[in-house]
Design a protein around this nucleic acid. Structure first.
Length: 812
DNA sequence: ACCGAAAAAGTTTTT
DNA sequence: CTTTTTCGGT
């Protein structure tokens, strides 16, 4: 791309439309459905359309007006999106630079680019407006920065910079930064910005909730600081563009005119700000196509507004809604399980997935009970080995957990088994300490006014420049209104500093000056190496004898290697703030371990789903904090998990789990009871199972290990779903008394029609006394050493000292 | 200014 | 039980 902002791109489109467009003609405006257009499309019977089913084809060919494509899991969503773009290009309806295609992640936009390239023959450079919400906003903002009070060279703060900045503001305000943490405020800020609320717009209640009513003031101050630093945080990228569009009608018109067709991926994940952004653009042009699945909305907790997709028809008048329900991924059992489960949710647009993929020998969805997380890992490890020995590739297997702490147990087990695995997710490459440090050095060289970067590395490695010195520098900087580095160099010339810090500071500044001079003279990768070397940074890690140190050095090498792809240091820094995920394109065969959240969009032949227990999944916190909505989001997460499986879905629940160091008994997840019995098998009981089911709580049909007993299937929720499902035929299952009466007796978490009312841990004082001899199903006999509420510390005769919950032991 | 010990907290994640 | 962050002593 010759033009860096891709905006004033000339008409040298790399795509040659299949249509009859004259070479020098301006963009054709053709009435959709016009005879010529249809003839044009028909003439070639383009091969890109031939493999589509009727709904997919409709979604591709309905180019005019608002379109909502409800694409269930595995129904070819990405295919529709990319084919639609290819179709618009091929029929000459728009040029590549006139299509806006928005995704959430860089990964998604990269994939889309690749797939469009497949259609159009390699060159997708013309698709200047295919990218994430944020990258597109940056592109717009760089062009019009002055109109919203920024300079075009503004820098983008990442989460870490943001937190440190907030911390400074909180301290400057004289607040206790322990009582009012920067992290907490960052969370509130995020919430506000997700809803497109500026300092003046935030609700009074929320403004008061933080720091004795200083919330609004802090927000204002934070924005002020950002503008002084000529910086924007991630939320600002969107908000500034919204402001720009609202205050500059001519600019808005320009973009409305430019974007003839707009596409949004994963629409169920959009927040309010993103919605408003889209609405502004769509005002001038109704050709908006949003693709999403309300049943896969799992990011409500970070601001995603399911309402956006639920209200689409209302918001975009005359919208065509197309449902993609034919699933190309999973067996009928897996689909039945997922569909039955998700039917328990109320607020949904409703889709029913179906498939032709039906063979008598398909595995049922399996549910297995295990004693504890250790046995869970052992069982899954064994099953993986069995599958592997039958010739299944490890790449086609995944363990999907609810929370990351569950991963360790599997890693441990797989290590002892010598099973190859990879963990997906976790800290991103660019979030690692060493990468951020190195980046801060580069930023200081390339952007001398980058205070946050300077602060980060001024004393890394240790140079004897602590708080005291830094405070002085800060004081000068604030008084003179100059960047920290400039302030530091002034300070050196005075006598205010003691000789030791003074020399240290001087040597740091001298270094930066030297590096800056070398910036234009040598290759940026070479300079980067020199910087890390001469600053003593690499040496610092070489001295470090901790286990991670070698890995960190490797990461630094990797960082330098990745810089090679960029033209210059500045070019590298420009891109890095928005795009830098490590491409772990690992060729080795390995089982994947990841959270359910990071599994969205992926698929595997076999999916292992451990930890289906109340409190963990659905997670207690989701229930406590968001009630019904929280439960429904958890259920969607379960739906996402099951639908990742192509051939085999295997679910597990443990009767006992160690949470925060103490053993707790657990109840099988209500989601297990929401699965359709005909498509589920209860897996064989494990040998080590002691016959102690459910930890003394109410029964679940999964307490039974008799493979012939599929349980009663009569929980209230199950009946409700049955009624919903069969309401057309008037059929209703009348059973269920047995379970209900048992449920009323149980002492565990109290639920009323799926809504949790009591907390998980009982607050009644323990009925045990010190020194008492007790029996525990796992650890055997022991004596009570101490009691804290319902937590007992017990010295077991065989197992040693353990902490357990009192409901776990009985008097003896 | 730096290091070690104690205390606190401990879903989910992208840009 | 772990990991991370903070506090206090040297």
């Amino acid at each position: 791309m010759t033009d860096p902002d891709g905006y004033d791109d000339s008409f040298d489109d790399p795509f040659q439309p299949i249509g009859t467009r004259a070479e020098s003609a301006p963009a054709p405006v053709r009435p959709q459905g016009g005879i010529a257009a249809r003839a044009m499309a028909a003439r070639r019977a383009p091969d890109y359309l031939t493999g589509l089913n009727p709904e997919q084809r409709l979604a591709v060919e309905t180019t005019e007006g608002p379109v909502l494509v409800l694409a269930g899991a595995g129904t070819g969503k990405t295919r529709v999106l990319t084919t639609r773009i290819a179709h618009i290009l091929a029929t000459g309806l728009a040029r590549p630079s006139e299509i806006l295609a928005v995704t959430f992640t860089n990964k998604a936009s990269r994939e889309m680019k690749e797939r469009i390239a497949g259609f159009v023959g390699g060159n997708v450079e013309g698709m200047a407006w295919l990218g994430t919400f944020h990258s597109i906003c940056v592109k717009i903002l760089r062009k019009h920065a002055e109109l919203v009070g920024l300079k075009s060279s503004f820098s983008i703060l990442d989460t870490d910079d943001q937190i440190r900045l907030i911390k400074q503001i909180i301290q400057a305000e004289g607040l206790d930064d322990k009582r009012w943490t920067a992290k907490a405020f960052a969370g509130m800020l995020d919430g506000w910005k997700n809803r497109a609320l500026g300092p003046k717009d935030i609700p009074e209640g929320e403004a008061r909730a933080f720091a004795n009513g200083k919330g609004r003031k802090l927000y204002e101050e934070y924005q002020e600081r950002l503008s002084i630093l000529n910086a924007a945080d991630f939320g600002d990228l969107l908000l500034h563009v919204i402001t720009l569009f609202k205050t500059q009608p001519d600019v808005l018109k320009e973009y409305q005119r430019r974007f003839r067709y707009m596409l949004v991926d994963e629409y169920q994940d959009t927040n309010i700000a993103q919605y408003l952004w889209l609405r502004l653009l769509a005002q001038g042009n109704p050709n908006v196509c949003c693709v999403g699945d309300d049943d896969q909305s799992i990011y409500g907790w970070r601001g995603a507004e399911v309402d956006n997709i639920l209200r689409f028809e209302h918001d975009f008048k005359g919208a065509t809604v197309i449902r993609l329900e034919r699933n190309y991924r999973s067996t009928s059992h897996i689909l039945a399980a997922a569909s039955h489960l998700i039917a328990f949710n109320e607020g949904r647009l409703g889709k029913t997935l179906f498939t032709d993929f039906e063979e008598p020998d398909h595995d049922l969805v399996s549910v297995a009970s295990v004693w504890d997380s250790e046995e869970e890992a052992r069982t899954i490890g064994d099953e993986i080995e069995t599958l592997q020995s039958r010739g299944h590739s490890l790449n086609e297997m995944a363990v999907l957990v609810r929370a990351s702490f569950q991963m360790r147990e599997f890693e441990d087990r797989f290590v002892t088994l010598g099973l190859n695995y990879r963990v997906i997710g976790g800290p991103r490459f660019y979030e690692r300490m060493e990468i951020r440090d190195a980046m801060a050095y580069f930023r200081c060289v390339a952007q001398p006014a980058d205070d946050l970067a300077f602060e980060r590395i001024v004393n890394t490695p240790k140079r004897g420049l602590g708080d005291a010195t830094l405070k002085l520098v800060h004081g000068v900087a604030r008084a003179e209104r100059i960047p920290l580095m400039q302030a530091a160099s002034q300070l050196i010339d005075t006598e205010e500093l003691k000789p030791k810090p003074r020399n240290a500071l001087k040597s740091v500044l001298d270094n930066f000056e030297r590096w800056r001079r070398q910036l234009d003279q040598m290759k940026h990768t070479e300079l980067a190496e020199i910087i890390l070397d001469e600053s003593g940074y690499t040496e610092m890690w070489r001295q470090d004898r901790s286990a991670e140190a070698p890995g960190r050095l490797d990461n630094l090498k990797e960082l330098i290697r990745s810089m090679d792809e960029f033209e210059s240091m500045a070019g590298f820094l420009e891109h890095i703030s928005l795009v830098m995920d490590r491409d772990s394109a690992d060729a080795t065969d390995a089982v994947s371990i990841m959270t359910l959240h990071s599994a969205k969009g992926l698929e595997f032949d076999t999916v292992f789903l451990p930890g289906w227990e109340e409190g963990l999944f659905p997670h207690q916190r989701a229930l406590d904090e968001s009630g019904r909505a929280g439960l429904e989001e958890e259920r969607r997460l379960a739906y996402v998990g099951i639908t990742r499986a192509k051939k085999r879905a295997k679910l597990y629940f443990a009767s006992n789990r160690r949470i925060h160091g103490l053993w707790q008994s657990t109840v099988p997840s209500r989601f297990l009871d929401e699965l359709p019995p005909d498509h589920v098998e209860i897996a064989e009981a494990s040998s080590s199972y002691g016959g102690y089911g459910g930890g003394g709580y109410g029964p679940s049909r999964f307490d039974s290990h008799d493979p012939f007993d599929k349980g009663s299937y009569s929980t209230p929720g199950w009946q409700r779903a049955q009624r919903a499902k069969q309401s057309s035929s008037g059929f209703s299952d009348g059973g269920g008394r047995g379970y209900q009466s048992a449920r009323q007796k149980r002492q565990g978490p109290l639920t009323i029609e799926g809504e949790l009312v009591a907390k998980s841990v009982s607050d009644t004082p323990s009925q045990f006394s010190l020194g008492e001899r007790v029996f525990h199903i796992k650890f055997g006999y022991g004596a009570i050493k101490s009691i804290e509420g319902n937590k007992l510390t017990i010295d077991f005769e065989k197992a040693g000292v353990k902490k357990v919950i009192d409901s776990f032991v009985e008097r003896h």
